[in-house]
């Protein structure tokens, strides 16, 4: 599995609990946090925890995805699905 596939798998999972209007699209421009983001804090935490668990299980990447600084920076890597995937792909390459 790739990082992108893991993120999309977790996106399918979280969508199971979201109402139709709030479901996340598999699009790199889909907002994750900040104004216009569809996830409330519970959904965001579950989504990120799920990604963290799957990164560990499928790619053996042991990383803290629930990073307060990243989560609170609405113009940072967690802004959209695309920036999120890109950030972790780069981080994985470096490591």
């Amino acid at each position: 599995m790739t990082i992108k596939q893991i993120v999309y798998k977790c996106l399918d999972e979280i969508n199971l609990s979201l109402s139709d209007g709030d479901k996340l699209n598999k699009s790199k421009d889909e907002l994750l946090i900040g104004d216009g983001g569809k996830l409330d804090s519970l959904a965001l935490m579950i989504f990120l925890t799920d990604i963290e668990k799957n990164l560990k299980n499928h790619l053996n990447i042991d990383i803290n995805v629930l990073d307060d600084k990243l989560m609170s920076n609405s113009n940072g890597p967690y802004k959209t699905i695309g920036t999120f995937i890109e950030y972790y792909e780069k981080k994985n390459e470096i490591n």
Binding site: I14, L16, S41, L42, M45, I46, T49, D50, K53, L66
Partner: peptide
């Protein structure tokens, strides 16, 4: 079964 983080953060003890 690996749900500790979910519990510590949002008090959800079970996975989806």
């Amino acid at each position: 079964l690996d749900i500790n983080k979910l519990w510590y953060t949002v008090k959800v003890p079970y996975s989806n």
